[in-house]
Computed example of a mutant assay.
Amino acid sequence: MNNIAILGAGRIATFMAQTVNGMKDVNLYGIASRDINKAEEFAKEYSVEHAYGSYEEMLQDPNIDLVYIATPHSHHYDHAKLCLQYGKNVLCEKAFTANKKQAEEVLSLAKEKGLLVTEAIWCRYMPMAQMIKDTLNSGKIGTPASLISTFGALVSGKPRLKEPSLAGGALLDLGIYPLTFAMIAFGNEISDIKTSAVLTDLGVDETHSVILTYKDGKVATLSSSMISAMESQAIIYGTEGYLKVYGMNNYEKIEVYNSNRELVETIERPEQITGYEYEVTAAFKAIAEGKLECPEMPHEETLRVMEIMDGLRASWGVIYPFD
């Protein structure tokens, strides 16, 4: 049985706990919080074997095979390094770190320690990601030419999204999903990026738009906001039709349309626990095979995403204390 422990006992940790409890070959071994009462309450509610009142205490436990980092992305750099220093493999929630420099340091330490580190951007690991690629490669919509992806939510009131010191703004929390979708569909050979953003009084992006132009002539237009409930979907247009993908963080279904705008095929998402199970399975598979990264989300791709987001923030004038 593979033992996983969760570092941080917030909302996203509950989502992972529910997932692991539905998996047959993974054991929810530990939960750590800076508050032992919070950890014990979490353990009781989600049937976790062990509760710890500090991250260091949990990381000293030799029975843990993988640590899922569920803290805000402003803390991922410190917590990933802490896990690695204690000899633990890491599944780190997105955004991997606050910037590329931090990501490079974490990946370098993982390589030095011979440990797996992978970014837990769940849609990369889902069967639907490959199904989207397969549908595009099938020629059902001809040659793909452009895409539009939107994802927004009414979350501007959350403290962690307000503050530059917490790596706030829409980009790292929401905008990463349309960007990820574009890279799944069209790859990362981008020749030009144009962008615009509206900033809050504290200097983080509340709404932004991005246009990616690819070396082969494809164009991706991406929009995200933390002050409006944008539709969570994408449309990919081709020379002989188009397809719609519903759900930018958890792909729900694909609809294929011909050039007459007629629906010709619907591809449903496979049955799942929550969708998080795929990243957990991929991480344990990579560990068993002695790999230091998951093929579903290679380190090179994590760094490319961080590099693009660094560039976007720089062009908007969004600066974090750790930049």
Rank of each mutant, 00 (worst) to 15 (best):
G139R: 11
K133A: 12
M183P: 00
G157V: 01
A170Y: 00
K133Y: 09
L147H: 03
I141H: 05
L161M: 15
K133W: 07
G142V: 06
L172P: 00
L166A: 12
K133N: 12
L161F: 13
M183V: 03
I193R: 07
N137T: 03
S191V: 04
P159Y: 08
D173H: 07
T135L: 06
L161Q: 08
A182F: 07
L147W: 03
M131K: 14
G139D: 13
G169D: 05
G175D: 05
E163Y: 01
P144F: 06
S138T: 07
E163D: 15
Y177P: 01
E189H: 13
L161T: 00
P159Q: 11
E189Y: 04
M131S: 13
G139T: 08
L147N: 03
K162L: 10
K140N: 09
L172D: 01
G152L: 07
I190G: 08
I184C: 08
S156R: 07
F151K: 09
A182E: 08
G142A: 14
I148W: 08
A185G: 09
T180L: 12
D192I: 00
L171V: 11
S138D: 14
K158L: 15
I184D: 05
G175K: 02
S146R: 13
P164H: 10
L161G: 00
E163V: 00
S156M: 09
F181E: 05
D173N: 14
G139C: 11
P144V: 07
L136I: 12
S156K: 06
L171E: 04
R160T: 02
I176D: 02
D134Y: 11
D173Y: 06
P164M: 10
L147K: 02
T150V: 07
L174F: 06
E189L: 10
G168R: 03
L172S: 12
G187L: 09
P178E: 07
F186V: 01
L179K: 02
G187M: 10
T135S: 14
S146P: 06
P144M: 10
T135W: 04
G152H: 05
I148E: 14
A145Q: 15
F151C: 14
S156I: 00
L171T: 04
G142H: 09
D173A: 14
S191R: 12
A185W: 03
T150M: 10
S149E: 09
V155N: 11
S146K: 13
I132W: 03
